[in-house]
């Protein structure tokens, strides 16, 4: 049985990391989690994203967050990837496609244009 006391170990590990990260993450990834996104399957996409970022140890370079409806409900689940001035909008996402995007785009820096809105 897990206990909340285990969190204090995470706190110790984070002490060194937090200072390193203050420069900001390289990638900001936002998953649309409004009614339209949730109904279209955004929750498992977000779960897959968090799992894969953890599994690939990308916490230092990837920050994951949620956003509301961006107005393209028919393309949900939508995942936006920001890096500097660049923005990629991945549409009609699934947990499987999300894992591919993490591996190719967020890990190796190669965007998967076939899943972006421009190719729809």
């Amino acid at each position: 049985m897990k206990t909340l006391a285990e969190l204090s170990a995470i706190r110790e590990r984070m002490k060194s990391k937090v200072s390193v990260r203050e420069g900001g993450n390289e990638y900001l990834v936002k998953v649309g989690m409004a009614t339209c996104g949730i109904a279209a399957g955004a929750r498992p996409v977000m779960s897959a994203l968090l799992d894969e970022v953890s599994a690939q140890h990308l916490e230092e370079t990837v920050h994951v967050s949620q956003t509301g409806c961006i107005g393209i409900c028919q393309y949900e689940p939508v995942v936006e990837v920001f890096k500097g001035d660049e923005k990629f909008t991945y549409v009609k996402m699934t947990p499987e496609k999300m894992k591919e995007v993490v591996d190719s785009h967020l890990k190796d820096g190669k965007p998967l244009y076939q899943y972006t809105i421009g190719s729809m």
Binding site: K2, L4, A5, E6, L7, S8, I10, R11, R13, M14, K15, V18, L50, D51, V53, S54, E59, V64, S65
Partner: peptide, 17 residues
């Protein structure tokens, strides 16, 4: 209380736990 004032709950490691 366990994590202290500096660790946000959206840390992937915290969420995994």
């Amino acid at each position: 209380e366990q994590l202290g004032p500096d660790v946000p709950l959206d840390e992937p490691e915290v969420l995994a736990f």
